[in-house]
Amino acid sequence: MNRFHPPRGGTPRPHALRDYALIADGERGALVGPRGDIPWLCAPRWDSEAVFAALVEGAGHYTVTPRGRFVRGGHYRDGSLVWCNRWTTERGIVECHDALALPGDPHRVVLLRRIMAVDASAEVLVHLEPCAGYGTEPARGIHRDGEGVWTGRSGALRWRWSGAEEAGPVRRGLRTTGLSAKIALAPGTSRDLVLEICDRPLGDPVVPSRAWEATENAWDEAVPDLASTLAPGDARHSRAVLRGLTGATGGTVAAATTSLPERAEEGRNYDYRYVWIRDQCYGRGGLR
């Protein structure tokens, strides 16, 4: 257990890869750090360019973290890739449940974050900075509608963010590059944040309660009980990982960081880990 402070200056510092949790829906995956930072997400698909690239010290991240000092912990919801960051703060316990909504749409990312003040009032700092093209294309056209829903663009991607109507602009120089908010929660209450990223028109907004219900039901259907195995908990988690890494076309990626170049400054988007036919055969056998 480590004691952390919220990141200063907006952009979170990278952790060792072992400190990140993976959330995935088959079509793409994101890494979630112990400070509630999401520093890596390729959108809209695994082989797309990153829209959050702070993992490699680029621009772009999405962070939900308690205000003040805290001790962190976390766990997956059993039989799923729904991640729960759990922070013990000076006031009490705060949780943030994170998931990529199921079923996954190849053209539309739906990132669900549910913040909960478990046993005391809580203040949570939220920072959203989409930056497509591995951090080279900052957000633009940021706008809030009459219902407090934010929209904008980054490169060819459109995005919409709901649940943070009190957010305000973040500027780098003269340019608005993102949004930040301080969210106060009373004991026992929660707040849903929904981020949608799409390479097509966004369509109707996502209803958080329905998206969470559909996602949890989809995981329950995808991961069997496996009680007859020697280690049911480990077997269920392995099954969940395979499900999260396997898209609708049947291809299974080997890592959430699939779209990183093979070497630094290589100048190309290539990674030999994307899909190996041999490993695919073993993986698909486990999903039957």
Rank of each mutant, 00 (worst) to 15 (best):
S162M: 00
A256D: 08
Y20R: 13
I277S: 12
S154I: 08
L226N: 01
V110A: 03
P103K: 07
V118C: 13
I142H: 04
G251V: 08
V207M: 07
C84W: 07
P169A: 14
W40A: 05
V206T: 14
D220A: 12
L112Q: 07
R69F: 13
G26F: 09
L111V: 05
R113T: 01
A264T: 10
A222D: 06
S259V: 06
A235W: 02
R18C: 09
L185E: 09
D271E: 07
P12H: 01
G267C: 11
P106C: 03
W83A: 00
Y62G: 02
D220M: 06
V124E: 00
G267A: 07
T257F: 11
T177C: 12
L125C: 08
E265Q: 15
V109E: 14
P44Y: 00
L242T: 02
A222F: 04
L17V: 11
G233R: 02
C198V: 04
G152Q: 02
L81W: 09
L179Y: 10
S121F: 14
G146N: 03
R239W: 00
V118A: 14
L17N: 08
D78W: 04
R69P: 01
A222V: 02
H143G: 03
R28T: 15
R278H: 10
L260K: 11
W276L: 12
A231W: 15
P7E: 02
L81E: 01
E137Q: 14
A99D: 05
S162N: 11
R239K: 03
W276G: 11
R144C: 05
D47K: 07
G133A: 10
R108G: 06
